[in-house]
């Protein structure tokens, strides 16, 4: 599956547009990570726990989006965008969405 955030796939023509596909997740880290982040807030530096949280959340949302695309029989998902929102303390919602398309055989 080709996944890009541009409107088309380079060198390929879009044969048909299958529609919007999306995936989301709300994830949180265990209590210890929040505590560690609180301590790190005194001395500064990267909050690795939260970076990890976002990476996991993005992967999961992406997987769900791709599963939908696969179900539609898509070759590619174009114009992928992410949005996020805060739901509760220490948690983040990550929402990935894009347009599933079928590509034409051969070049443009």
């Amino acid at each position: 599956m080709i996944v890009v955030n541009t409107e088309g796939v380079p060198g390929r023509r879009i044969a048909s547009v299958l529609g919007l596909v999306q995936g989301n997740t709300v994830r949180t880290k265990h209590f210890g990570r929040d505590l560690a982040a609180g301590l790190k807030n005194i001395v500064g530096g990267e909050l690795k726990g939260y970076t990890e949280l976002l990476t996991e959340a993005r992967r999961q949302a992406m997987e769900r989006m791709l599963a939908q695309a696969q179900q539609l029989g898509a070759d590619a998902v174009v114009n992928v965008r992410y949005t996020t929102s805060a739901v509760t303390g220490g948690a983040a919602e990550l929402y990935a969405y894009g347009t599933a398309v079928k590509l034409a055989e051969g070049g443009e």
Partner: peptide
């Protein structure tokens, strides 16, 4: 994008 991880504390 910016992400809001909520106010953990």
């Amino acid at each position: 994008d910016t992400v809001d991880i909520g106010a953990a504390e």
